[in-house]
Nucleic acid binder design. Structure first.
Lengths: 332, 332
DNA sequence: CGCCGGAGTGTAAGCGCTTACACCACCGGA
DNA sequence: TCCGGTGGTGTAAGCGCTTACACTCCGGCG
């Protein structure tokens, strides 16, 4: 910007303190003076410098968020919910995508330096960096990470949801299952999903790795798997994108879904509804996740705790065509 | 943050000027002194305050971007390309979504106050606000807005692409068309697409309004249209989401796509590929759009113009199943 | 032997605000 | 009439940096 509070003060014939008070409504200012100030502000098109304000106030009035990428709808939706609430609370949001970035540590620290608090997706920051951040005392919310002290955590429910899904598939009468997902770390969403699925299906389910959580890697993995001798009857995919890839693979191999093969996803992204057959999947409240993160951060920053430090949000099983035609209702 | 340059200076037994010089590499510092400073920095875990640096340097090292929402993949992809390049250039990105926000003007001004430059999607800011922003002299890049002076503009090609699509459909032998799109303003993407389509198809195409650019409104509009007496043979949709809605409507009415009805989209979002029939559509280089915006802004801020102030990016016609089985090749 | 110039460092003036504190009227009550 | 308040305002001290400028050594040169 250009025009400063000094110019306004001079034009209005008052001191800068008075201008500040008139503008922010702190402290008493006579009606006449206020008017003069406002007039000068108008004429000069004065906007207080954010930098000056922040430096003096000692706060950025901004929040950060760190996510791996935005290609799928998952992070996007969370981000959207986050931005909406953050800006309701008067905070701008600064984003950082770590995908394909060489210097994640630096970038995250840099980001931390320009915000009052940070939301971090579990998968994006290595443990030691997390510890370092926590040590600084900065308000922090982690999404999909194991509860820890020194920071809030937030995630949607996985284990029980996975159980429900597995039971539902069992109800269809399938006996051989595969679980398609990239290598996962202890405590992340995927490993929780696996935990739920394998608890129900026991030996009947086999874990299969994919390279990533993308359509292409889902396609590759499914292709390989389905060409094998003992083809599973149902593919439980760790997310919708992998499932879409599996659908593509099945199509290519001439397998009918769901008659020859059932496929399920996770997240209920947009394409899940439009795929044919439409994907049976588990809907995560992604927007809500973002919104809660923003609120939790705000409380952390403000120092008033109204909500719990560690939240788990409920999910919903969305039954469409890809798991079979006549589902018997979920037994449990 | 907590520890300041003064503490570092004291611990290292030097002045703050020397600390600053040692850290930034401006001005001469003896090896011994540098070492002392770095040691103190380590021990104290000092990180320069972004606010202090910015205030002194007179720059934010941050860019803003204003978009309507993130629900579709279009803005998301642009954002992603933007963030990637911006951060390569050493700039953070601050986002602002205008969807459903009451005080857009204030929000945009506030955003403008915390960045060095702004990317704005054409549809989000009213003309007078645009003028106001331009008047401030702030570096500005508008996406999908008519070229103007005082700011860069960037968009992907529409008119010729629309022509190509229309010709392709004509090649299928269709004679009655409808163009599905929300009310558009002069100069925006949709009106350019309509321009291209109607230039080729003339009276054979009828414009049909949708409430928004969403699956639901596409569905509604298509349902109404397809129930009418003279059903069009091909639906040219203004974007993929509308087209997906149209697909749903056709399915509900028992119309086979593409045998009974051809449908096309625009953007080539993820779901376009996975819909069945897969959508014929026009692929925009969304990521590239964002990347270019970031670079243009950087040049604007730096004052070095390497690229043109007004760019138009080429698109690609992606032919899939939804427009018909045996396309004769595009005549033009 | 006196000077010049450059390396190395410190001092202090900003950058644009907020706000504690001091100050000055002026009013009403004793 | 005097005094304690209080509304209204200015002064100045930060907030955490960067950097122009001044200063001090020293080595090298004439």
């Amino acid at each position: 910007m250009d025009v400063t509070i000094y110019q306004v003060a001079e034009r209005a014939g008052v001191s800068i303190a008075t201008v500040s008070r008139a503008l922010r409504g702190t402290g008493p200012v006579s009606a006449k003076t206020r008017e003069k100030v406002l007039k000068a502000v108008q004429e000069l098109r004065f906007t207080p410098s954010r930098l000056g304000v922040s430096l003096a106030e000692g706060r950025h009035a901004a929040n950060g968020i760190v996510f791996p990428n935005l290609s799928g709808p998952y992070y996007t939706e969370v981000l959207l919910g986050y931005e909406e609430v953050a800006s309701e609370l008067g905070r701008s949001v600064v984003i950082l995508s770590t995908k394909g970035r060489p210097n994640v540590r630096e970038a995250i620290k840099e980001l931390a330096g320009r915000v009052d608090g940070l939301v971090v997706f579990g998968s994006t920051a290595p443990d030691d960096l997390v510890a370092e951040l926590v040590a600084t005392g900065m308000p922090l919310v982690f999404i999909s990470r194991e509860p820890m002290s020194g920071a809030d955590t937030l995630r949607s429910e996985n284990v029980e949801s996975a159980r429900r899904l597995a039971c539902h598939l069992q109800g269809h009468g399938y006996a051989r299952f595969a679980f398609l997902g990239a290598p996962h770390q202890p405590g992340d969403d995927i490993s929780q999903r696996w935990e739920g699925v394998s608890a129900v299906l026991k030996d009947a389910v086999e874990p299969v790795l994919t390279a990533e959580y993308t359509v292409d890697s889902g396609y590759e993995a499914a292709l390989k798997l389905l060409r094998g001798r003992t083809r599973p009857q149902a593919l439980i995919c760790s997310d919708d994108e992998v499932a879409l890839g599996a659908l593509l693979a099945a199509e290519e191999l001439g397998l009918a879904v769901p008659d020859d093969l059932a496929v399920t996803g996770w997240d209920d992204i947009m394409a899940a509804r439009h795929a044919r057959p439409a994907l049976t999947t588990i809907r995560q409240p992604m927007r809500e996740l973002g919104a809660r993160a923003a609120r939790a951060l705000d409380e952390l920053i403000g120092g008033v705790r109204a909500t719990s430090a560690h939240q788990t949000l409920a999910t919903e099983l969305v039954i469409r065509k890809s798991c079979g035609e006549h589902p018997q209702e979920d037994p449990k």
